[in-house]
């Protein structure tokens, strides 16, 4: 069966920074993750030096495949001399980043505003 679920993103511009709110509670579906990667990748490709904040406020579950997309996105951003920050990660999800030590790889801030400041 083909899963037609699309990732739900709310994008707003704050100065030079694109703030993307991830609206899905669960980021588990393989197709959804792939589409999320494509959509975020397009956002990065649209700018010379992209500055991107991903807001995880609503995310309650994610898989290792979703972590993989974030790593790929981080490479894309750095490849264009941009900056990426993650924000509002719930404690349970932050634990996943800690276990995999990806909390050392990504800039992770408590709030979206703090993340925007970090990229200024």
């Amino acid at each position: 069966m083909v899963d037609e679920q699309q990732p739900k993103l709310r994008i707003r511009r704050q100065g030079k920074v694109n703030v993307v709110e991830l609206e899905d509670r669960k980021i588990l579906e393989e197709l959804l993750i792939a589409q999320l990667g494509e959509q975020l990748g397009s956002l990065v490709d649209a700018e010379a030096e992209p500055r991107l904040v991903l807001d995880f406020k609503k995310v309650e579950h994610l898989s290792s495949a979703a972590l993989g997309i974030l790593i790929t996105l981080d490479k894309q951003v750095k490849g264009r001399r941009g900056k990426l920050a993650l924000a509002n990660i719930q404690p349970q999800i932050y634990e996943v980043f800690k276990i995999t030590r990806l909390n050392k790889l990504f800039s992770i801030q408590d709030t979206a505003d703090a993340a925007v400041q970090a990229l200024a």
Binding site: S63, S64, A65, L67, G68, I69, I71, T72, K75, V96, I99, T100, R101, L102, K104, L105
Partner: peptide, 17 residues
Amino acid sequence: PTCPERICLPNGRGIML
């Protein structure tokens, strides 16, 4: 997957989790 040469790879974390 947390060793320095693998930390930037997009996969290989499932069993660890």
